[in-house]
Amino acid sequence: MSVLDIKNLTVRFATADGEVAAVSDVSLSVGKGECLGIVGESGSGKSQTFLAVLGLLAPNGRATGEVMFGNTNLLAADEKTLNGLRGDKLTMVFQDPMTSLTPHMRVGRQLTEVLIRHRNVNAAAARDQAIAMLRRVQIPEAERRFDMYPFELSGGLRQRVMIAMAMLCGPKLIIADEPTTALDVTVQAQILDLIRRAKDELNTAVILITHDLGVVAGLADRVGVMYAGRLVELGDVRQIFNAPRHPYTKGLLACTPRLDDTTVGTMPTIPGQPPNLQRLPTGCAYHPRCPAVMELCRVERPPLLATPTGSLNACFLENAS
């Protein structure tokens, strides 16, 4: 039974230069207590996919397809239904903890607001629950921090507050968009531990969007790789890292410098740069950069198909071999 089920999601933006598809025909699902990692470079559509899920697209954006969260199609839901779900059963943690907290409101009030709105508890009970949650995310001196403003907290503490807020109502799904990108590496490790605990202890489903393959390797159960608005590979985390099938996934892994890598000299690279979404190459969007390009790739787009190991891969090589 999946918590979130996305079918054929397409997100288009109306721009001065015409319509641009930021996300094209993405289908995926995430189950209870599962962590789905979504990786891709800037412009791959990984953030827009889930902003569409949350109903938070920019005004010029339009999403089509179907996004089932329980029995609700989020794309068809009205604002009232969405507001009832967001912050309660469906929560999010964004990249920058400074800009995603309200600067002129004390941390405590931002937390109790969630409970008072969704749980209909009185202020005293909300305060107790909020402080308990701040302790749970290992914020030292929780009572004192409760009365502080966001600017008085360090980046790591602010992100802990965001996670506390996301966990307050016992969500079914947390969408974390680059939750540790703005943080130092020692703090990042602590925040990832918190997300891992939320997943294990509360059986919450987590969607972890990031460009950092190492973060995904440590936390995700399954991984989806996006390129130019499409899902190009989706599989078990070990399959993606140990036996990647799509040439883009292989390329990404090869050109990621690793701490445990003792080789020196020239690094493997992916030639060229990610495509402009307004002028996508014909056929497979990756073909101009692909080392294994075939004639067919230039004219036809490879569909995302099941592989013998049960993963999904959008590459003609898969069928050829």
């Binding site: 190492g214 390797a217 440590g218 985390v237 070990r238 890292f241 892994l253 690793r258 701490l259 445990d260």
Partner: peptide, 16 residues
Amino acid sequence: QALISAVPIADPDKER
């Protein structure tokens, strides 16, 4: 030691 141990490695088995 803390810094190095905190850097995520892009290998699920090693990282975990």
